[in-house]
Design a protein around this nucleic acid. Structure first.
Lengths: 131, 131
DNA sequence: ACTTAAAGATTACACCTGTAATCGTTGTCA
DNA sequence: TGACAACGATTACAGGTGTAATCTTTAAGT
């Protein structure tokens, strides 16, 4: 179920994940910063619908668009693909690259540590469950 | 300096990063698993040279190819782009997605923790240096 | 009732990508 | 020395992408 959303299209998805349903006009407005023609945005909406990742309900003669896939699911999917394609599945190397190159803030470091602790707890719990 | 290497082309880069210089024939051999025609591989080598990410020296009438960019630099670049495009620069969310979805092994968890400790030390050191 | 404006549908078009096949040159073997 | 084989160069071609413009339909204003 490899979702295929192009880079430009992702910007449209992000808008819809923030808020939906939205009319095409509203989406265009929220994409001001991208500085795309209204036509361009509509093309993307169209393609996204054809790809099955966006749906719409009719509201009179216009459509109200909504995402048809979960953002979390999408992110997980993209991340998986990125790991495989760029790092050939080597998770350690990926983590090292991010941690070392991005100079995590104190805040991000602590957040990540707490994530890791949670994860460890979960692992422990699972081990116990098995026995 | 946004490097532009397509997905299929990355496989060729990976070979050259493992060992270089290599003749086109050698690259083809090492890409057996991809099950591409020899022609296809040569097309990629050609395109990579045109993109400036691979160079060659002549060896008689054939070329010996080598990467023209560092793997580390490339990975950092791709990671940066991925973070921006998919997670809109939100590092915390990216980390959470990887940590939560990929079920890190005990080993990976420990490795990551040690990375974080190193990072913290570095931060401390830098703070001291400033003063 | 007509004209017009706006929405979605269709068409455009160049560049990138995946995946080769063909062309031209030249070293090599018979 | 003549045919062939192997190399890189050039060409091919469909599908995806970025970026719109044009077409068609229809609600709405005069």
């Amino acid at each position: 179920m490899t979702i295929r959303v192009s880079e430009a299209e992702k910007n449209v998805m992000d808008i819809l994940w923030q808020e939906s349903p939205l009319s095409s006009t509203e989406v265009v407005e929220k994409l001001q910063s991208q500085d795309w023609s209204e036509k361009t945005v509509k093309t993307f909406l169209n393609r996204l619908v054809k790809k099955g990742v966006v749906t719409y309900q009719k509201d009179g003669r216009r459509y109200l668009y909504s995402p048809a896939i979960e953002r979390d699911e999408f992110l997980a999917d993209e991340s998986e693909g990125f790991l495989d394609k760029v790092f050939k599945g080597n998770m350690k190397e990926l983590l090292a690259t991010f941690v070392e190159n991005k100079q995590l803030s104190k805040d991000e470091l602590n957040y990540l540590k707490s994530l890791l602790d949670d994860q460890e707890d979960k692992d422990d719990k699972e081990r116990d469950d098995v026995k």
